[in-house]
Amino acid sequence: MKKVYCKPESMTDIEHKYCPGCGHGLVHRLVAEVIDELGVRERTIGIAPVGCAVFAYDYWNFDVTEAPHGRPPAVATGIKRVLPDRIVFTYQGDGDLAAIGMAETVHAANRGENITVIFINNAIYGMTTGQMAPTTLLGMKTTTTPFGRDKNLAGYPIKVCELLATLAGTAYLERCAVNNVKNIINTKKAIKKAFEMQKENKGYSLIEVLSQCPPNWGLSLKESLKFVQEDMTKQFPLGVIKDIYA
């Protein structure tokens, strides 16, 4: 008898505080599996966000620091420039990355920093109980858009990958999801490719992951998986958005 699937070494034994079925737990595990497979656990540094993933440093078994709301790309820039042999990545939600941290996001990408960004797009502010995010879909009800997001009042959902694709500094941008086995496996492949590129000094990469947040969407988990599949992917199509080496 041999263990074929088990907790990666890059995860601790601490139990996540996430809601049942939350995509954060899945992406944490995928990142950990990739770091194990690449054998870089001892030289990886993660930067956790503000948001539901604020305790990521408890769950990962490698060095993780924590940056105030939206600033992980700036902190990652500093760490990577001082310690260029480390694998440096940020892990950020859509409120963190695309609202308060949009300036840091865009400028780190535009400078072409050799870092990896793992971007959890759940179309909402999770931790603070469901306010509109820049990625909230039109018509979607949140606590700050109780009648649904109205483009005349709140503008349109931001497509982060497509936006960053216009910048000459970005090398690899892919959008994935974790709503079923096939998409989970693809997400892992994309994360692995991003970390491999960083190892080879190939520049800035961002993996956007469409991620279910059932409690704040007011949906059951099954309905949430369907919402990702049918509604979110219409606004945010899956696939490689940019790969300068392809």
């Binding site: 008898m1 699937y5 088990c6 996430y18 989970i184 496996i185």
Partner: peptide, 21 residues
Amino acid sequence: NSCGLCYQVCPDVAIEIWKDK
């Protein structure tokens, strides 16, 4: 049959799969 699909979708790493060598 130890296919591991349950492990793949578990957000809480609550499942471990073993297989004959």
